[in-house]
């Protein structure tokens, strides 16, 4: 039974990767409806993937690298679909490529299902993780929007520096990340007696929160408004360091 379910998990994951690949192709060639259907199929498959893992683990399925990367890919897709009307197709496609990369990265890791450790078994953990990843997705979109606007800024209209969509994405991301930090802090207090410890993941989470919180003010600061696009673009690198860098290249206890 378990072996059959494990096969179901791996096959839904591969199918989801393939389907999101098709969604990218459809999006690149402007087949809007086919892209939508592909993404809905992706979400259905990934729901089966997560539900099966949750059943086998008897807990929320956000406790290993594979689940972390898959969660990020889902949240990027959801974010892309929500903001589809407000962004250019190339930005939408770039987001799908990011989601694809995130899900494809799960193939690097050996998928051995483990029960979550005792520390993870709390409601604060599943509240903390998806909210952080949703914020990453929104901030990624803000970064992509900034990145694609750089060419426009050089050639056309300086007023584009305002880019209200970037600020809107940042504000929504900031709210989600703030709640993620609050929930994480409560969990830290209950599990380790501290809402902050000298751990690189925690340190970089504070960095991200301060960085994006600071950027929320930039629209009201005429002297720095021309920094907006470059700073949001740099923000993507900070997210990558927080999400991947601290997990792979530091001694953080947070592997994801």
């Amino acid at each position: 039974m378990t072996t059959e379910l494990e096969t179901l998990i791996s096959s839904t994951r591969v199918a989801a990767i393939v389907i999101i690949g098709f969604a990218i192709l459809f999006s690149m060639f402007g087949h809007r409806r086919s892209t939508t259907y592909s993404l809905l199929s992706f979400l259905l498959l990934i729901t089966i993937f997560f539900a099966t893992r949750a059943y086998l683990k008897e807990f929320f399925p956000f406790t290993d690298k594979i689940e972390s990367f898959a969660t990020l890919s889902v949240l990027i897709v959801v974010c892309a679909m929500i903001y589809r009307e407000k962004i250019a197709n190339k930005e939408f496609t770039t987001l799908l490529v990011l989601a694809f990369s995130s899900l494809a990265a799960t193939l690097i890791f050996e998928d051995k299902l483990h029960y979550p450790t005792a520390y993870l078994r709390t409601i604060w953990y599943p509240l903390h993780v998806p909210l952080s990843f949703a914020a990453y997705a929104l901030w990624f979109l803000a970064g992509i929007d900034a990145l694609y606007s750089t060419r426009k800024l050089k050639s056309i209209d300086p007023a584009l520096a305002d880019r209200p969509l970037i600020t809107e994405l940042n504000r929504n991301g900031f709210i989600l990340f703030s709640f993620a930090m609050l929930f994480g802090g409560i969990w830290g207090y209950l599990a380790w007696g501290a809402y902050f410890m000298w751990d690189s993941k925690l340190l970089w989470s504070v960095i991200l929160w301060l960085y994006y919180g600071n950027l929320l003010h930039i629209d009201a600061l005429p002297r720095f408004r021309h920094w907006k696009v470059p700073l949001y673009t740099i923000g993507m690198a900070l997210i990558l360091i927080t999400f991947i860098g601290t997990g792979f290249f530091t001694r953080s206890i947070h592997k994801f």
């Binding site: 410890m197 751990d199 690189s200 970089w204 960095i207 600071n214 930039i218 953080s252 206890i253």
Partner: peptide
């Protein structure tokens, strides 16, 4: 705004230093 960016930069440097001097900074210390 400038001070906010300086704090961010300072924290990033701190993270780097902590990762280099592993004897001085044990993982996950209070």
């Amino acid at each position: 705004f400038i001070l906010g960016l300086v704090v961010v930069f300072n924290l990033a440097i701190g993270s780097l230093v902590m990762n280099i001097y592993t004897d001085l900074y044990p993982p996950f210390f209070p």
